[in-house]
């Protein structure tokens, strides 16, 4: 009887003809309702905290210490870049320089330092996108939802192919942007350029009249090291390949 009344009261229905002693049970029902409300809030908060901790863990914990101290990038950028580099440029390929050997984190650190702050943020957001988006765009198999840098090489390849071949233009565009940063870093290594025979030619720069006007960037006019007497004849148009004896 008491349980029924409480249930009825709890449902918000009007209770008719219920003994006074039973009315106290209405208060009890309200208390139960309030308690269940608190429990819901507490449950929600606990879930939120757990989700937050999970996200925090996913975002920052468990990354290996980087090989060196970087100025701009953090440990997660470095781990992502190493993982991406080894996927794009694996060891044992036609070019005898692996992505890991190319030290892309070091390159990215220097490159990002040269960018305006807004663009620096954009590039790091791009790294973050690829590192974390596996939670909604997973690979296959066990650990398919892990961070990109924690995946197996095969899973990383699956993830990157998903971006490269997506029917969504913006995903392909993001992939091209990431690829551009990585390739620029890879080609930033002289041994890569030398192997591919596309390194720059040695060129002696003539001293032109303009060199008497401008100092190097950031320096004062007084730092201009040339005078009229230092001017040299302009380029005579001798092809650089002839100078190096290459046809």
């Amino acid at each position: 009887m008491q349980r029924e009344v409480a249930q009825l009261a709890g449902c918000g229905r009007r209770v008719v003809g219920v003994p006074v002693s039973s009315r106290s049970h209405c208060h009890g029902a309200a208390a139960v309702r309030a308690n269940s409300g608190y429990a819901g809030v507490v449950f929600f908060l606990v879930a939120l905290i757990i989700a937050g901790l999970f996200l925090l863990h996913r975002l920052v914990r468990g990354y290996p210490q980087p090989r060196e101290r970087y100025v701009v990038i953090g440990v997660w950028d470095a781990a992502f870049l190493d993982a991406a580099a080894s996927t794009f440029f694996p060891a044992g390929g036609s070019v005898p320089l692996s992505g890991l050997e190319a030290d892309l984190p070091g390159y990215a650190d220097r490159y990002l330092a040269s960018l305006p702050s807004r663009q620096r943020l954009l590039i790091r957001a791009l790294f973050m996108l690829f590192e974390q988006s596996t939670i909604v765009l997973p690979a296959r198999g066990l650990g398919a939802f892990r961070r990109f840098s924690s995946m197996t090489p095969e899973q990383r390849k699956v993830v990157l192919r998903g971006w490269a071949e997506s029917r969504f233009y913006l995903r392909r565009f993001a992939f091209t942007a990431l690829k551009a940063v990585l390739i620029m870093g890879y080609f930033g290594r002289p041994e890569c350029l030398q192997f591919l025979e596309v390194e720059s030619f040695e060129i002696e720069t003539p001293i032109a009249r303009a060199d008497l006007l401008y100092p190097p960037i950031g320096q004062a006019l007084e730092s201009i090291q040339y005078a009229e007497a230092d001017l040299t004849p302009p380029s005579d148009g001798t092809p650089v390949n002839m100078a190096e004896g290459i046809r």
């Binding site: 996927t87 794009f88 440029f89 694996p90 044992g92 390929g93 036609s94 070019v95 390849k157 990157l160 192919r161 490269a164 091209t176 690829k179 551009a180 390739i183 620029m184 890879y186 080609f187 930033g188 350029l193 591919l196 025979e197 596309v198």
Partner: peptide, 24 residues
């Protein structure tokens, strides 16, 4: 700059490196 041209080469991994090796 060779890197700027290489960005437009398709592929990933060994396939991409094979294409790099055709640069010459």
């Amino acid at each position: 700059a060779p890197a700027a041209l290489a960005v437009r080469l398709p592929g990933l991994g060994h396939e991409l490196l094979d294409r790099f090796s055709q640069f010459g």
